[in-house]
């Protein structure tokens, strides 16, 4: 997530050049658990098991078939895999044992790296907010996270959302799941610098492995 937009663009072009028309091979090489895609037998149980299935333009097994058919742009620009909430229903039920949840996240991640992920996808933006939140301090700051999330579409929208969610918020406050002082207290783990170093190194290894450099 540390790449610039132009770096993303050139990375995308590099991949296009490298794999020509073979998007499946590209997915196998670059997407987390991507080498499972070919094992799909098109039974449809993943799509049917997904609790948010209605929200998907292309359910998982269609994505797999599109990958097979080389529909690179449609897949990578799709919002579908961003809909996955990691309930793991599909993984549990897939008769071929495909780690579908992981593949969905892998695809999303890959699309994001190439700068093809839909910019305004709320789940993508949530993911970014969440990541920024947790990777800064090493701990999730629920209060900051909620506020950033509520206000990501502007102040008025944020107020409206906060008002709509007030009962939940109040409940969380009462059960001490939400600490208003956390807004001001930095919190986090002891050695944040070390965490940053670990993450940086992890990025490097990952990029190297996936051919981004």
């Amino acid at each position: 997530m540390g790449q610039t937009v132009s770096a993303q663009g050139s990375a995308n072009q590099a991949m296009v050049d490298k794999y020509r028309n073979n998007f499946l091979r590209e997915v196998e090489a670059n997407v987390e658990e991507g080498d499972w895609v070919k094992m799909c037998m098109q039974c449809g149980v993943c799509s049917g098991s997904c609790p948010l299935g209605n929200a998907w333009e292309h359910p998982p097994q269609e994505l797999f078939m599109m990958i097979r058919a080389g529909q690179r742009e449609e897949v990578l620009r799709s919002e579908s895999m961003w809909m996955c909430t990691s309930c793991y229903n599909c993984i549990v039920r897939c008769p071929r044992g495909l780690p579908i949840t992981h593949i969905m996240h892998g695809l999303a991640n890959y699309a994001n790296r190439l700068g093809l992920a839909p910019k305004m996808s709320p789940t993508r933006r949530f993911a970014k907010i969440f990541w920024d939140n947790i990777s800064t301090t090493g701990r999730v700051n629920e209060t900051k996270l909620s506020i950033r999330l509520y206000f990501m579409d502007g102040f008025v929208k944020g107020l409206k959302t906060a008002f709509a969610m007030r009962k939940v918020g109040l409940g969380m406050l009462l059960t001490r799941r939400l600490n208003p002082f956390a807004l001001f207290a930095p919190g986090g783990i002891k050695n944040k610098r070390q965490l940053q170093q670990i993450l940086k190194r992890a990025y490097e290894i990952e990029d190297q492995r996936k051919g981004f450099q």
């Binding site: 098109q42 039974c43 449809g44 799509s47 097994q61």
Partner: peptide, 22 residues
């Protein structure tokens, strides 16, 4: 389609097959 799950229709008590036609 491999049926993903079966539920029970609350009114009729009949089984409901859920899934996606591939």
């Amino acid at each position: 389609s491999k049926v993903a799950s079966i539920a029970q229709d609350p009114e009729s008590g009949k089984p409901v097959c859920r899934g996606v036609d591939t």
